[in-house]
Design a protein around this nucleic acid. Structure first.
Lengths: 254, 254
DNA sequence: GGCTATAGTTGACTTGCGTCAAGACAATCT
DNA sequence: AGATTGTCTTGACGCAAGTCAACTATAGCC
């Protein structure tokens, strides 16, 4: 029995979301679209791209041309600070968007690297205007998605400024779980495609602290951890730890 | 010689930005607007509102109806967590937008309170669609502004997850300075409209720590502080402290 | 298979910042 | 003026999490 057949507990690289559960669904496949419109979108908007583990999807400073959506696999985005260190700004799972922050500037403000072999939909931004003429709801949808991002980062900000290491890790695990569930994967059992290093970087913690927290959570029976493999046992206690339930909801769309 | 006449070193409540230096400029007064269009906008979009110190502009849970722009004064936005505590998500100065995170949900996800008597432009969101028909660039402008917000919060996230108390305060002061300058106020001398408590809350620091940092900065000759009054002396060292110069830029639009 | 490089874990030690507590200064009210 | 209340500052102390360092497990490679 391989991963694929073992229900929906599998590595993201082996999973592909259907367009139905994609953030871009309202954009790519608007409800009132006729065959002609769908063909238009098919040709104008969708462009597949495969990036393998460690490869860049885009780099900071690249001219902004497109926004991206993860079909399968997972992507980390990060910005570089002057001293050469990088700060992870997000993990992007199947069905989620990235590259939106580039809209406001000519260049991409950060970089994106595949955490594993991933399939990506690329939407050239210059075509948005043309497309919007036939699809009046498109820009509203984009605005809504951007607003959601704003909310997400506000939440993350809150998480990072107030919470302890324990709370941060609990919140991340719940966020991942919620997002897996939304796209039809198991919310209790999954593989982390990112390293402890990435997690620590994202949460503002040292690697060692992340490691210690995993060990503690496991010892306390909250979850089972074997390297990248995670199985969540006690949602209730994790939620308590992470704090406000509103926070989880908002974390859901990373 | 009162505050008003003392150049442009004054309290925000006494200052009003012209529409020219407002974030909404591209929206409120599009470049190619004829008299008829301007009249349309004047009637449909602009609605003034004055909120006095401590008063709510909106509350978390209120139905989302409008986005707002500060004309004069200053506003703090915050979200409530389950335990009743609040987390400051931003300080909004003349010319800056707020309420954008509400677009994605039906209700306002957070609250906004005036830090001093403030004049606010209110733009009913339902009219955006109608208005966009006569002003094709409007939605693109809104999208751009939202993208800028995303970038800002990514930066803030980075600030909070990695930086020390010293770096955080330096970054905030530089951010305020940049934003004052952009709107035509003095970048070196200003009054803080927010309390130490708000600052600490925003930066994820205890009030005492904020206070100690101000004292230390003053002792080191970086600035002069007398309660709310701040005079910056050494930009260079402040920038060094705050870290990446890119961060300041991005902090500029809060 | 064994060798090397990388990622993850664990322990010992240090430190920045939060917490608690007391006091100083401003603003407002009577 | 003096009393009251809220904001800000300063000091003493403890702890959560960072740093340094050694060790272990895993993955990738010849």
């Amino acid at each position: 029995m391989n991963q694929q057949t073992k229900g929906n507990i599998l590595k993201l690289s082996e999973a592909t979301v259907s367009c139905r559960s994609c953030s871009m669904y309202g954009i790519c496949t608007p409800p009132n679209a006729d065959a002609g419109t769908l063909a238009l979108i098919e040709n104008a908007v969708k462009k597949r791209r495969v990036v393998s583990r460690g490869e860049h999807l885009y780099r900071a400073g690249d001219p902004f041309t497109s926004i991206y959506c993860v079909r399968s696999g997972s992507i980390k985005t990060f910005v570089n600070s002057d001293d050469g260190s990088e700060q992870v700004t997000g993990f992007h799972l199947p069905g989620e968007l990235l590259g939106l922050a580039g809209i406001c500037s000519q260049d991409m403000p950060g970089s994106a690297i595949a955490l594993e072999t991933s399939s990506i939909c690329e939407i050239p931004y210059e075509r948005i205007d043309a497309l919007a003429e036939t699809l009046p709801g498109l820009k509203n949808e984009l605005i809504r998605l951007l607003s959601q991002k704003v909310l997400h980062y506000q939440t993350l900000t809150m998480l990072l400024s107030r919470k302890s290491a324990e709370e941060r890790l609990a919140a991340l695990l719940l966020s991942l779980s919620t997002r897996f569930k939304r796209r039809g994967f198991s919310p209790t059992e999954f593989y982390l495609s990112m390293s402890r290093n990435d997690i620590g970087n994202y949460l503002g913690l040292a690697v060692e602290t992340v490691s210690r927290m995993f060990t503690r959570f496991d010892a306390e029976g909250l979850l089972t951890v074997q390297r990248k493999y995670i199985k969540l046992h006690d949602f209730e206690r994790l939620k308590q730890m992470a704090g406000s339930p509103r926070v989880h909801l908002q974390m859901a769309q990373a």
